[in-house]
């Protein structure tokens, strides 16, 4: 066993696994896997977006009446947070590419900060709705919106909830990448984890780009 280990550390950089020819091939494989996952995520969310189209078609008046009860400024603030976090994430990947450890750490922390700010805004939005009696599904108890508001808000909670879950998972991944960056694990020669977590984080931003106008804005 020790022979194998020796072999690995003398002839390979520590990040290169044995079943890959080169760092380039390993990085390309990891990225391909990430894009397959992203394609899957897009199709997963497409189900929710299709549900939105179908329900909006069936309850046009309800959707117009109910969407007035979402706070546009809160949604816009969260859009700003996510876009900014996307920028800092892209900058963190760039810092890793250029072996700039300190800059990578700062940008990862900023990304985590904006992600947490997003969650705080979401918390205030959700708690205000729960406070009014706007609960998901059968617990819905707010009588001031005509039509089928429980249908709209059921969809709202599932779509934004699924997205928020992705944000929370993203925060975990970002923390992991941040801690690894601090140990000096990443450099221009090996930064695949930073890049792929970055792709995931941009996907979270991408989904919000569609959620925000559909839920908060469209009149």
């Amino acid at each position: 066993m020790s022979q194998v280990a020796d072999h690995a550390h003398t002839e390979h950089p520590p990040h290169l696994h044995h079943h890959f020819h080169s760092s380039a091939q390993q990085a390309a494989s990891a990225k391909l896997g990430m894009w397959v996952f992203i394609a899957q995520e897009i199709l997963f969310f497409s189900g929710l977006f299709m549900a939105y189209i179908a329900l909006r078609y069936l309850y046009p008046k309800t959707f117009l009446a109910a969407h007035e009860h979402l706070d546009v400024s809160m949604g816009a603030l969260n859009t700003v947070f996510l876009i900014t976090s996307s920028l800092t994430m892209a900058l963190a990947v760039r810092a890793a590419q250029t072996s700039n450890k300190k800059w990578a750490e700062i940008n990862l922390l900023l990304t985590i900060g904006f992600a947490l700010a997003f969650c705080v805004v979401k918390y205030f939005e959700y708690s205000h709705k729960f406070h009014l009696g706007i609960f998901p599904g059968k617990y819905y108890a707010y009588t001031h919106i005509p039509g089928n508001p429980e249908v709209f808000f059921g969809l709202y909670f599932v779509m934004t909830g699924m997205h928020a879950l992705h944000v929370v998972v993203g925060i975990g991944l970002l923390l992991w990448i941040y801690l690894k960056t601090r140990t000096g694990a990443f450099s221009a020669a090996y930064y695949s984890p930073v890049e792929n977590v970055g792709l995931y984080w941009h996907l979270v931003d991408l989904i919000w780009i569609f959620l925000f106008p559909l839920l908060y804005l469209v009149k």
């Binding site: 002839e11 950089p13 080169s22 380039a24 920028l87 760039r94 250029t98 221009a188 020669a189």
Partner: peptide, 20 residues
């Protein structure tokens, strides 16, 4: 042994900050 050469060949494609 040929791996040694290919390790170094993975040069990241760095975009200028202005694009971001």
């Amino acid at each position: 042994s040929h791996h040694k050469d290919s390790h170094g060949s993975h040069e990241p494609h760095v975009l200028p900050l202005s694009i971001y």
